[in-house]
């Protein structure tokens, strides 16, 4: 159980932020539409989809395991850093777990801001960190058997965009 004193390092109490970890599907259109407002000039979204191939390995099904106690906290922490770094009107992160088929939606990240640069950058930042920090593990199965997906070095390298001395592509 979480230590009572640790509080929520994430954004559970930030009204701009919506974080959902769920088994069921989501409607990207409705989620994006919910971020629209008179002061929002830009909404950038990313939808991650389950593929039917992984190198030479045909994938018939993906099972996403996660660490329920930590997942929400980890996504909240990433979102909080994005909200602190860019001037965002809203941020939505939805990540599914359980059994998925090729073509199924896995994750949605949508960032809304006054101007486009912040939304583009924040969306990519959240996706990049989610892939290396959020406690999800994919197992893929198909005609050739079943295997755990290996973490990719390219995912770690993607973070260099955000950790170098440069402030990122179009930092607000």
């Amino acid at each position: 159980m979480p230590a009572p004193s640790s509080g929520n390092p994430g954004t559970g109490d930030d009204a701009r932020c919506r974080i959902l970890v769920q088994e069921q599907d989501f409607d990207p259109g409705a989620q994006i539409e919910a971020l629209r407002s008179t002061t929002t000039g830009a909404i950038v979204s990313f939808v991650g989809i389950a593929r039917d191939f992984s190198g030479d390995f045909p994938v018939g099904q993906i099972t996403l395991e996660h660490y329920p106690g930590m997942t929400q906290k980890s996504l909240g922490d990433i979102a909080a850093r994005a909200l602190a770094r860019w001037d965002l009107a809203a941020l939505c992160v939805i990540h599914r777990f359980g059994t998925l088929a090729p073509g199924d939606r896995i994750v949605l990240v949508a960032a809304a801001s006054r101007h486009r640069d912040a939304a583009f950058d924040a969306c990519r930042y959240v996706v990049d960190y989610l892939k290396t920090e959020a406690p999800f593990w994919k197992r893929e199965s198909g005609a050739l058997g079943s295997r755990w997906v290996q973490a990719k070095d390219s995912d770690d390298q993607a973070l260099e965009r955000w950790t170098g001395s440069a402030p990122g592509p179009g930092a607000a």
Partner: peptide
């Protein structure tokens, strides 16, 4: 009394 978790590198997203 802590909850300790051990796991491989994550592969979500």
């Amino acid at each position: 009394g802590a909850e300790i978790a051990f796991f491989p590198p994550v592969t979500g997203g």
